[in-house]
Structures are given as structure tokens and as C-alpha cells.
Simulated assay, not measured.
Amino acid sequence: MQQLEWINVDALDVAVRVWHPDAPRTLVAWHGLARHGGDFAALARRLGPEWRVLAPDTPGRGLSTWSPRPERDYTYARYAEVAVALLDHFALERVAWLGTSMGGLLGLRLAAEPATATRIARLVLNDIGPELEPAGLSELGEYFSRPHEFTSFRDLEAELRHHYAGFGIADDDGWRRLALESARRLPDGRWSFHYDPAITAQFANDTPRDLWADWASLGCPAMVIRGAHSPLLAANTVQRMAETQPGLVSLEAAGCGHAPFLDRDDQVTAIADFLACHTPQRREL
């Protein structure tokens, strides 16, 4: 990360991590449910100096504000408002968007809504689509509805290695970095994760959407990455996505589940090739 910028949305301070701030092209990279923008550091390094990568911490995660009203602020409607504020802050009329899990569904929402559709030039969905496997979704909701507290940092790291095995991180250094960037001290000296436990409010308070209708209305080029062992995105869902959007570019990430960490050369090369096709140049301010 080269810079850290802040956006204020109705008293919520939203941190935006910026790599290659002077690059000619821009990619917005939005993380999953219980992660933060720092997850895209390896992707940003591998994409290189031609790409400015903007990776916000969604409210309730990372360096951003925890909301006193989770039932209002931890919903896709609020995240969409934050996303528009980010696009306006950086004067991005039209931009490439990559979203992991929750961040992918947010990008799909923006690309499908008439008010924001023209602002998404290309869309990359990382292990997410318009239909999710019920068992995997249930397991996800159950896991994050429970408190996670640890006596030692080593215990926290061991839990990360277990729960996020689907990231496909290949070495001990990678796991240690993930743990360092995911931990916070509790008042009693124990450890927990960086996010507000109330982020699961979105499961109870979000308004359901017809995601297949959103997908069918998509007007920009799209790419989907599926972890080969994903419990959330089935292979037959990707096939149906391609039937609905014949131009869909797809990649199956070997050795990954939910969700590929996008830190491998083959994954980044495929993303870079897709993004390079007619992605708008950055507008000079």
C-alpha cells in the first residue's frame, strides 16, 4: 500500500488502501464479508505500476468505522452508497471492478442498477455468482455469527489457516502476514479478528434481490473466477452464467475453495488480460 485515503459517508469513516497512486488505469477491488482491502496487496503488486488499485475497507472491517447502527449500515444498500462515494471521491466516471464474494455481489448490483450501471466498465467476480450453494451459505452465516476469541496469537493464526484454507495460500509467510493483518487485541488481552461481530446483521436485514435478473441485465464485459473446491459457487452455476452472458470469461483456480486469494501468477495474468481489453484510462484531475 502506497497511500491511505479516507471517505466520509454519513459519519462513517471509510479507509481506502491505494497501490500505485499515479498509475494510468484504475481497478476498484472490494473484499469479502469478513475481510478488508489489504487482501489485495499481492494482486496489486503483480498487476504492476500500470494499475492504480483502490481497495476500501467496508464499514465494520479493517480500519473503517464500526457502525452504531448495524441494521442500517451493514447492508448492501449502504455499501452501494459507500461505493458511489468512493467513485465520486476519485472522480471515476467508469472503472473496472473486481469483487471477492460480498464485493463481487456489490459490483454486480452496481453494474445492474440503472443509476450506476454506466460506471462499471468491466466486472470480475471472485468465487461468487447469482446463485449460491445453500449448504455453503449456511455454513458461512453460522461461522460468522459466533464470537471468535483466542488466548494466543498462535491460536488465531491456526484458526485462520483452517477457516481460510480455500484461499490457497501456499507458504507460512503468507499465513503469518494474513494473521498479522487480521488480528486485534481485546480489552482483556486476548485476541480476535479485525471486524465488528455485528457485520452479520446483513443476513437478517438485507432485502433479497433477484440476482439472476441482475446478471441477465449486465451490460459490461464480465469474468468469473471459481475456486475448484468452492462450497459456494457450483460449476453448473458458472455454466448457466455463461449461457446467460455468452461473452463471459471464466477461470477455475486449482487448489482453491472460497475464495482464491488472487496471489498466484496464473490467476493474476488471467485477470490482467481481461482488464486490459478496453479498460478506460484514468481521468486526470
Score class of each variant (00 low, 15 high):
156 L>P: 00
105 L>E: 02
140 L>C: 10
159 E>I: 04
96 A>Y: 04
121 A>C: 05
77 A>Q: 12
101 S>A: 02
148 H>V: 11
110 L>A: 13
94 R>K: 11
80 A>P: 07
77 A>M: 07
72 R>V: 13
154 R>D: 09
78 R>D: 08
118 T>Q: 08
55 A>K: 08
57 D>W: 12
90 F>W: 10
52 R>M: 05
114 P>K: 09
112 A>L: 08
112 A>D: 06
97 W>K: 05
139 E>N: 15
123 L>Q: 02
82 V>Y: 03
164 Y>M: 11
152 S>T: 15
105 L>I: 06
103 G>K: 00
147 P>A: 05
123 L>D: 04
153 F>G: 00
130 P>N: 10
121 A>Y: 02
127 D>Q: 11
164 Y>A: 08
150 F>L: 05
82 V>F: 02
110 L>T: 13
78 R>H: 15
154 R>I: 10
142 E>T: 13
56 P>A: 10
121 A>D: 11
81 E>W: 11
143 Y>W: 09
110 L>N: 10
94 R>P: 06
130 P>Q: 09
104 G>A: 02
149 E>Y: 01
88 D>T: 07
70 P>Q: 13
120 I>R: 06
147 P>D: 09
114 P>I: 03
94 R>D: 07
82 V>N: 02
56 P>V: 13
108 L>I: 09
127 D>R: 14
120 I>Y: 05
90 F>L: 13
149 E>V: 15
166 G>C: 13
153 F>D: 00
51 W>M: 11
54 L>S: 01
116 T>W: 07
97 W>Q: 05
91 A>S: 14
65 T>D: 07
94 R>F: 00
154 R>T: 06
109 R>M: 08
105 L>R: 07
165 A>D: 07
87 L>K: 09
158 A>W: 01
95 V>P: 01
71 E>R: 15
148 H>Y: 01
145 S>W: 07
142 E>K: 10
133 E>F: 12
98 L>R: 14
69 R>N: 13
156 L>I: 02
129 G>L: 13
165 A>L: 14
87 L>D: 14
58 T>F: 00
53 V>N: 01
87 L>C: 15
155 D>G: 07
128 I>W: 01
51 W>N: 08
85 A>W: 05
101 S>V: 06
72 R>K: 15
55 A>T: 14
163 H>P: 00
147 P>L: 01
62 G>V: 11
82 V>H: 04
142 E>V: 10
66 W>R: 13
118 T>R: 12
59 P>H: 03
124 V>Y: 06
61 R>T: 15
114 P>Q: 12
93 E>K: 09
80 A>E: 14
119 R>D: 10
117 A>R: 04
52 R>D: 04
72 R>C: 11
144 F>T: 08
54 L>E: 00
90 F>T: 15
71 E>Y: 12
53 V>S: 04
74 Y>T: 13
165 A>W: 08
109 R>L: 05
122 R>L: 08
103 G>S: 06
87 L>Y: 12
98 L>W: 03
97 W>A: 07
156 L>R: 07
116 T>A: 06
141 G>I: 07
129 G>C: 13
124 V>P: 12
162 H>M: 02
61 R>E: 11
128 I>T: 05
68 P>C: 05
82 V>I: 07
127 D>V: 04
68 P>D: 15
148 H>E: 01
118 T>Y: 03
67 S>Q: 14
71 E>K: 14
144 F>Q: 09
111 A>M: 02
74 Y>S: 13
157 E>M: 03
161 R>T: 03
127 D>H: 11
129 G>Y: 15
